[in-house]
Write a protein that binds this DNA or RNA. Structure first.
Lengths: 156, 156
DNA sequence: TTTAATTCTTGAAAAAGTCAATGGTTTATT
DNA sequence: AATAAACCATTGACTTTTTCAAGAATTAAA
């Protein structure tokens, strides 16, 4: 093959040096696109997506999340939580428990079946995350996790 | 006010310690949600969104992106690029130039007006990014940028 | 030359996001 | 205590985004 102006490899490098590629917002969006595609694939055999997995995870945790809590923490509209919990509840993975302290709220708690499925799902997302981070050392992964959590969990 | 079991502050801390909050995928999704909301607001006065800004940025750069390049680099379907470029082109900010080397492709290049708007828009996104990173030192921001770019720009 | 791939584009369908309104409940104000 | 204001889950309408498949034009491979 003769020189054709630009090979595929050098073009990729060109894009990596673009101004946009230096912007954090772009890098985060790109990482999220690749990451959620990969995670969705890993979760598919379990009948979960990133969204429903996130709800299930919090329902398994000891945080006793109300649906409002879920909406806030997952950056979703409260109306989006409804069908997510509906689906998990229909499948017997979580239950809505009216909060005794505030009967407006419903706390979403995992059933035993939900806990078991979560254990499997967590393995899948861990593998998926490891795949995404092969180019980083263990120390670098810890560093990235620390920096990201400080930014992502900052109280607005 | 009497102790009510859990204050709002301690509940937030509880969520921050949840298993989900340790997952990179989740942190990235959350950071992206907050970041793109903020950036969209910052770009609104200029008639841009994160998407159209990204296209404009690459059209201003010296990478001569085809629409396919834009789709790949921005993690979008090629059919999503069409209306984005349509809009920018209607506003006289970019032009579609048929690639002489491959007449199937169209290279998207910014006009002078596009370059000028981009200069303003870049200031807005820079401010937006700075707002999001107030809790990090300059060294930590550089570190985060480095780690993120190594992950987000890795050749799949 | 024929076949296969690729690029842009269109259009349809599914999924996700936004927003206002409602019934039931709690908090704040008077 | 009574009234008003605020809040939660849910519904429904609406817009935007995403995903796919197909087609015309062009290039690459056989």
């Amino acid at each position: 093959m003769a020189a054709k102006g630009s090979t595929k490899a050098s073009k990729a490098e060109l894009f990596m040096r673009s101004n946009l590629a230096q912007e954090l917002e772009f890098l985060v969006a790109r990482m999220r696109a690749a990451g959620s595609a990969r995670a969705n694939k890993a979760l598919e055999p379990l009948g979960l997506k990133v969204r429903s997995y996130s709800v299930l995870s919090l329902a398994c945790d000891d945080v006793s999340p109300t649906q409002r809590d879920l909406a806030d923490f997952l950056s979703l509209d409260p109306s989006q939580i409804v069908p997510l919990v509906d689906d998990l509840e229909k499948r017997g993975l979580v239950t809505r428990i009216p909060d005794p302290a505030d009967r407006r709220s419903k706390v979403v708690i995992a059933t035993d079946a939900g806990q078991r499925l979560y254990t499997e799902a967590r393995k899948a997302t861990a593998r998926s995350e490891a795949e995404a981070l092969t180019m980083l050392s263990e120390a670098e992964r810890a560093q990235l996790r620390d920096l990201l959590s400080r930014v992502a969990l900052a109280t607005p």
